[in-house]
Amino acid sequence: MNQSLRDQLKQWEKQHKEMIREGRQKNRKRNSERLSEIEINYLMGVNMPTYKRGKGGAWRNVR
């Protein structure tokens, strides 16, 4: 008879423990880049001028 999916998964994990550990270690290296609050605001365009359509189709600075 076929094994249940849970039993198959446990068996696969036992055979591939080293691969699982390596994958977890690779994912930890992602958080190396740290941005300051000023850099994040610049990337989001917080201090960029905002324009709005005006009468006659002209663009006006809202701020």
Rank of each mutant, 00 (worst) to 15 (best):
M44D: 03
V46Q: 02
E33P: 00
V46N: 01
E22A: 15
G23E: 14
N61P: 00
N31D: 13
L5E: 06
G57E: 05
Q15L: 08
K17L: 02
N47L: 08
G45L: 05
L35Y: 09
E39R: 02
R30S: 09
R63C: 09
N2G: 07
I38K: 07
R60I: 15
G45M: 02
L35N: 01
N47C: 04
R63A: 15
G56F: 06
T50Y: 00
R60N: 15
E18W: 11
E37A: 10
K52N: 03
L5M: 06
S32K: 13
M48E: 14
V62C: 14
K26Y: 03
E22T: 12
N2T: 04
K26A: 14
R24F: 15
M1L: 08
S4T: 10
L35D: 00
R30E: 07
K17T: 03
Q3G: 11
E22D: 14
G57C: 02
R30N: 12
A58L: 11
Q15Y: 08
P49V: 00
Y42P: 01
L43G: 04
N61T: 09
E37V: 08
V62K: 15
Q25F: 07
R6C: 09
L43R: 10
N31L: 12
R28F: 15
L9A: 08
K14F: 01
I38S: 01
N27Q: 11
S32F: 08
E13S: 05
Q8W: 04
I38P: 00
S32A: 13
E18H: 12
E37I: 04
T50R: 08
R60G: 09
R34M: 08
R6H: 07
G56Y: 12
D7E: 15
Y51P: 01
S4M: 02
R60P: 04
R6P: 02
L9Q: 11
R30M: 11
V62L: 12
E39I: 03
R30I: 11
N41Y: 06
K26H: 04
R53Q: 12
Y51T: 09
G57R: 01
G45I: 03
V46G: 03
E18Y: 08
R30H: 08
S32N: 09
K14T: 08
E33L: 15
L9W: 07
I20W: 00
N2F: 09
E22N: 15
D7L: 07
N47S: 01
M48P: 00
W59E: 11
R30Y: 06
R6L: 13
N2R: 05
G54Y: 01
N61Y: 10
R6G: 10
G54S: 05
E33C: 10
N2W: 04
E33F: 05
M44N: 05
K17E: 05
K26G: 08
K10A: 13
L43H: 01
D7Y: 02
Y42R: 14
G57Q: 02
K55E: 07
K55I: 11
G54E: 00
S36P: 00
K52W: 05
E39N: 04
G23A: 11
Q25R: 15
Q25H: 13
W59I: 04
Y42L: 12
K17W: 01
G23W: 05
I40R: 10
G57D: 05
N2P: 14
K52E: 11
G56H: 09
I38H: 06
I40T: 04
W12Q: 02
L5R: 05
R34K: 13
